[in-house]
Amino acid sequence: MSDSLATVLLAMLAGSLRVSTPFLFVSIGECLTEKSGRINLGNEGVLVLGAMVAYATSYETGSPWIGVLAAAFAGLLLGALHGAVCSLARVNDVAMGIAIMLAGTGIAFFFGKPYIQPSAPLLPGIPFGWWSGSSQVQNALLVCPLFLLGIAAAIGLHWCFNATRVGLRIRIVGDSQDAALALGLPIDRIRFLATACGSALAGIGGAFLSLYYPGSWNEGLSSGQGLMAVALVVFARWNPIYCIYASLLFGAAGALGPSLQTVGITWGYYLFYAAPYIVTLVVLIITARGGRSLAGMPGQLSIGR
């Protein structure tokens, strides 16, 4: 029994390292966008497009890193579209996000057809488990450089929000339109840039999916990771560091379903597969403050009114 428990725990650790990276990138990207007072549900579409562009570019150029850059650029473009349209008066950013999700997915599927068959070069993993004799441990600790990049980006973003002028401006624009106007900040431009850069990060998350894990391009690749990342931002309290924890937790919960089956617990696997969502909901409820706004929530965010 304790053996099974160890197996499940190790699988959850490995799973959280494997599966969390796309959530991490999309959630810190979304965090950046939301801090400026705008929401972008379109990051699901950005994720899918990023995955396709990364894979196609890696196949065409032979370099997965160029693929990652291309995915970020594709995300930047789609985010710029979202940012530009949403800066028009009266345009609803939640709805526009759904439109971007549809457009991004459609474009990715359309142009991605020829890249389903071929195998593109993938990103290498960094073997942090070299010290262990166990192949499970070795594999669990084979870490994608993008994961480290994501953690660095989260820390950088946290520092940016709290210690730099740029970060302060983004927070002011997101928290209070009146204050931003009084200070003469270019509200639309700041939000536009925050949205575009946030989507570029989400695009890198897509590159992880197609170039590292599971490491191939096909149309079922994203099963709503981009949407769920938006939920993770809420539960991470708009704090990039908490986004890391939220993504790891979500990844670990996702590994529960398959690993329980390998140790013989096979009842109700659909419910175990839903574990990450149940965890998210529970955390949302526990941390909710009835009648009051959430700590850390940007005041101008449309979902927070």
């Binding site: 699988a11 594999n139 599971p214 140790v263 096979t266």
Partner: peptide
């Protein structure tokens, strides 16, 4: 022989997770 049911006909991330779990075993 160990079997894992993913519950879906096509869900690559879940299939990859199942495969890795099985290999880890």
């Amino acid at each position: 022989t160990s079997v894992i049911f993913t519950g879906e006909w096509s869900m690559p991330v879940k299939e990859a997770e199942a495969t890795n779990s099985l290999i880890d075993q």
